[in-house]
Amino acid sequence: MIKIDVDMDKCQHYGQCVFEAPEVFQLNADDKLEYQAEAPDEMLADLEAAADVCPMQAILITKA
């Protein structure tokens, strides 16, 4: 399992992460970020890509 943490104090809701891993990250109707806290190991590359493109570097990916 991979654990996903987004520092919501840092997150500016740009949604760059959404494009890399839409299964985990979404912008809701108010343009605010929503995400799942866990994902299967196969998604590691996508999740790292999402962490890479976050302008605020707010996404932390850890292998649980």
Binding site: H13, Y14, G15, V18, F19, L27, D31
Partner: peptide
């Protein structure tokens, strides 16, 4: 300015 979902949709 704002409207992030709309802008994202252009990608």
């Amino acid at each position: 300015i704002g409207m992030r979902s709309a802008v994202q949709a252009y990608r």
